[in-house]
Amino acid sequence: MTTSLLWIPVTLAAAAAQTGRNATQRRLTETIGTVGATQVRFLYGFPFALLALAVMNLVTGEVVPGPNATFLAYALTGAVTQILATALMLAAMRERAFSVVTAYTKTEPVQVALFGLVLLGDHLTLAMALAIAVATSGVLLMSVKPGTSLTSSGAKPVVFGLASGAFFALAAIGFRGAILSLDQGSPLIRASTTLVWGLGLQTVILMIWLGLLDRKALVASFKAWRPSLGAGFLGALASQFWFIGFALTTAANVRTLALVEVLMAQAVSHRFLAQATTRRELAGMLLILAGVGLLLLAQR
């Protein structure tokens, strides 16, 4: 496999780790609240990111690149928008409209492509645009149950879901911009450096926020350190792969291929929750696979 295609297995690994992280983090929402569960992802992921960067520095001998003004602006944008996106996603899930939330948050690839084109000048071909549209339509089809619509759960999950997708898109663009703005280093070391800065900023922001406005949730997140540690590790692992993907190709490519996470979540539900797959869901899966296939063909 050429270096230019390494983003494909990297993205698949990120999607798998994130599937596990989401399940763990969703359970924490029920015990320590939305903001507390959001903070767990960053607070407990930060040490793992630091350890990964230290190991890479030791093994490769590469110098960790220092930040510049452009890097800090992009990293801060990515950090803040990812916090908002995660909080909105978890809040929408608490409305008990998981399928609707999934549908709207997974409009992210469309928004990533538009933001990437405008803010970073990332190239978007007709084939890539078609792939994004087909894969996203598959997610929407999977999320609409017979006799219902995407708006049947009320306005709040719709608004939260769309806003979450938009902020996730801006976070992806912010972190890719930060990675590209570093002056030196391989894609791996630049991605890992950006991850450490991103998680560090997010940890500080949320610690201050919770310390001032919700100390109960802050204390609860420390008490729930055992499950939080697992969520933090999986979150850091997923983010490590996401950032490497962003260093190797456009955010639109990474986030479109990442829609296979929907298929992974469906497989988990089928295997462990004994949920049968309907014809509608199967048709949606085929559309996702078709969109991903088109995307991979467009890379040639």
Rank of each mutant, 00 (worst) to 15 (best):
Leu72Arg: 03
Lys223Gln: 13
Gly147Arg: 06
Met264Asp: 01
Gln299Asp: 03
Arg94Ile: 06
Leu248Gly: 04
Gln240Ala: 14
Pro187Arg: 12
Ala172Thr: 10
Leu295Val: 00
Asp122Asn: 14
Pro187Ala: 13
Leu58Ile: 09
Phe272Arg: 10
Thr278Ser: 15
Leu295Gln: 11
Leu259Gly: 11
Ala135Cys: 11
Leu296Gly: 03
Ala283Ile: 02
Ala97Asn: 09
Ala103His: 07
Leu162Gly: 09
Trp7Glu: 05
Ala135Tyr: 07
Met285Cys: 12
Ala16Val: 07
Phe42Val: 05
Phe243Thr: 02
Leu72Ser: 01
Leu188Pro: 00
Ala172Ser: 15
Asp122Glu: 15
Leu141Thr: 15
Trp209Arg: 11
Ile208His: 03
Pro65Glu: 03
Phe167Ile: 04
Ser186Val: 01
His123Thr: 14
Leu257Val: 14
Val63Asp: 07
Thr77Glu: 02
Met285Phe: 00
Leu182Tyr: 06
Ala231Cys: 07
Val100Arg: 09
Thr249Ile: 10
Phe115Leu: 15
Leu170Trp: 04
Ser153Trp: 04
Val254Gln: 11
Leu28Phe: 10
Phe175Pro: 00
Leu234Arg: 02
Asp183Ile: 00
Ala69Glu: 13
Phe222Val: 13
Met207His: 13
Ala16Leu: 13
Leu295Tyr: 06
Leu273Asp: 14
Gly138Arg: 05
Pro157Phe: 11
Glu108Gln: 13
Ala155Ile: 09
Ala265Gln: 12
Phe246Trp: 02
Gln184Pro: 01
Ala274Arg: 14
Ala267Val: 12
Ala16Gln: 00
Ala135Asn: 12
Ser99Gly: 11
Ala191Ser: 14
Lys106Asn: 12
Leu119Met: 14
Arg279Pro: 00
